[in-house]
Design a protein around this nucleic acid. Sequence first.
DNA 1: ACGGTGACCACTT
DNA 2: TAAGTGGCCACCG
Length: 113
Amino acid sequence: MRNPDNSFFEDVYDVVRQIPKGRVTTYGAIARYLGTGMSARLVGWAMNASHGKNVPAQRVVNRNGLLTGKHHFPPGSSMKKLLEMDGLTVKKDQVQKFEEVFWNPEELSKGQY
DNA sequence: ACGGTGACCACTT
DNA sequence: TAAGTGGCCACCG
């Protein structure tokens, strides 16, 4: 859940951490969930600061399912490999069956037992 | 306090 | 179909 006390970044991290295995989400989805509206840039920017945190940023892709931020990942950690480890299929930096594995943060409000 | 920046999104040529 | 431009909001110097 969102901690108003935390910064926007923490909110983003919290959401990303709750992404189920084998699922991915988009910047826009997170942004909208947090109420940032159309400013998905903030989410992407937040991910930029996710280095050193326990945040699976590889599960966060753009709305096209394209691994735009793969180039930003630390060397050695292949975003593609990480996603494949989750059971996803990545081809040419693009998540296959993206619509199937897409996970909407709104599910947290709905099915968070 | 102000401006620049950013792993985006959407619309328009 | 592809490329270009604007808008949007929060963090940093």
